[in-house]
Amino acid sequence: EPLWIRPDAPSRCTWQLGRPASESPHHHTAPAKSPKILPDILKKIGDTPMVRINKIGKKFGLKCELLAKCEFFNAGGSVKDRISLRMIEDAERDGTLKPGDTIIEPTSGNTGIGLALAAAVRGYRCIIVMPEKMSSEKVDVLRALGAEIVRTPTNARFDSPESHVGVAWRLKNEIPNSHILDQYRNASNPLAHYDTTADEILQQCDGKLDMLVASVGTGGTITGIARKLKEKCPGCRIIGVDPEGSILAEPEELNQTEQTTYEVEGIGYDFIPTVLDRTVVDKWFKSNDEEAFTFARMLIAQEGLLCGGSAGSTVAVAVKAAQELQEGQRCVVILPDSVRNYMTKFLSDRWMLQKGFLKEEDLTEKKPWWWHLRVQELGLSAPLTVLPTITCGHTIEILREKGFDQAPVVDEAGVILGMVTLGNMLSSLLAGKVQPSDQVGKVIYKQFKQIRLTDTLGRLSHILEMDHFALVVHEQIQYHSTGKSSQRQMVFGVVTAIDLLNFVAAQERDQK
């Protein structure tokens, strides 16, 4: 057995438009009618409502009807409940999964919650491996369901041993009777949507819809739904939504950006999952974080739909894509998950301010006199920076000697690579993860907040409520011999709460 199987392995699926269902090699399930009293909570997966979006479509000038398939009504709160249950049931049916076995899954959280929910009911041990950027709410729900959680670096490539995929496979090879159901490759993922989600949409719309818009992560949702719609409703256009920084969209030119990270969760990847059939997507749109969270908040405030950030991405694209539809036509959007997962993220004004998705003037509360002053007023001194090749031991000596707790790590040209902190280095040394002679590049981390000289002290204040420091950066445009230009970030300084307090105190003292 291989040590790991690539999540982007070539698909062996034989589905073709027009091929009889009787030739399918898979076990198919028909939607079942729910009894009045459910035998367990797993029976509350599927049969989610279709809700008309009344205000947002009109606000953006849509002539067509805009409908939302509300997947956050599933038992675990997301569309991923469907595939989690289906993968477990299919693994039980073919004898792969037996009582007492362990389920391991690399996930952005929602599939993990679905699997942990099913594992709690069915009696399996469950280990979820997820990147650090995923919300604390997801972690809390997983723990409450009895799952064990392993976190991995957000910026690790999918084929790196440190990625959530790599760590999951390492655990599988170490733990007896453990299984990775593997949402990236498992046919049960798109089949769950082909058999149930798509049929529900067709039934709820009486077979009449002209466009379907869905955000894409593993691709199982859009693949399964689109294949069924292509068979039953061939005139329906399928629109895929991919965040900026991901590479799922086609044509490839759409993916060209210097951005590699994004805040919206559960969609987009740096590889093409095996289950994603991009041939059934008629057109791709890219979405960005700001519009995703703005539209998610709009869905909550104006439509009462308590959905997550990827739902915002989907609707932001839908109001663009559906401009081509006329009166009497219908566009369906998939709202994948609930706001429950993001209470401390985009639902929080403070978080939105820190990330730059909300401006101070958007909030009406009274601010102190210094709130709208610029960061450049602080008069920061030149920063202490270190090269990635310097040793951890030497870096600790320098920081202690100069009285700093942290320093930016830059390359020879001064471009920011990340940050090192005294606390992080000492804990890594004590844990045996690094040696004093190791290069400081081994303990770089990139989960820090950046701020510009033109940003306000109010925004800085919000950042420092949650973080010990902020890195002050400025952009530099560099022209190359080819005539092309590129933008790079340079370090201007490091600012802490002490710097802000000293500035405010000094100004008030001078005024007296």
Score class of each variant (00 low, 15 high):
R297E: 01
L417P: 13
M425L: 15
A311L: 06
L353K: 10
A301C: 09
P251K: 06
Q507H: 15
V264I: 12
L306E: 05
W351L: 03
P273R: 06
V315F: 10
S485T: 03
D499G: 01
T364R: 12
T389H: 14
T344Y: 06
R330Q: 12
Q511R: 12
E252R: 12
L399C: 09
V415A: 11
I272Q: 06
L306G: 04
L501H: 05
P368V: 10
T421Y: 06
N255L: 07
S428R: 04
L353A: 10
T391V: 12
A470W: 01
L353Y: 14
L373S: 13
D289S: 00
A316C: 05
E252C: 03
V332K: 00
I416G: 11
Q487W: 10
L306F: 09
E265M: 03
L347F: 07
M490C: 12
K446C: 15
L299V: 12
L501F: 09
S310F: 02
Q489R: 02
E265D: 05
F295C: 15
C392D: 08
H462R: 10
A382S: 11
L254P: 03
Q376T: 12
V386S: 09
T257A: 13
L306H: 04
Q511S: 10
L464Y: 06
T261N: 11
A322F: 04
Q489S: 12
D270A: 02
W371Y: 11
D349I: 04
G403K: 09
M425T: 13
V315A: 14
S486R: 14
A470P: 08
Q507G: 14
K366W: 09
A296F: 06
G245M: 01
L373I: 12
K355R: 15
K484S: 13
V386I: 15
I498Q: 02
A431I: 09
N255Q: 06
T279W: 13
V315S: 08
G379A: 13
L373V: 15
V339T: 11
Q406K: 06
R278C: 02
V386R: 06
D362L: 11
K449G: 06
C392R: 03
G328W: 04
S461Q: 09
T364C: 09
Y445E: 03
E465H: 06
H394F: 13
Q439M: 05
M298E: 10
K484G: 11
A318I: 00
E365N: 01
Y479N: 14
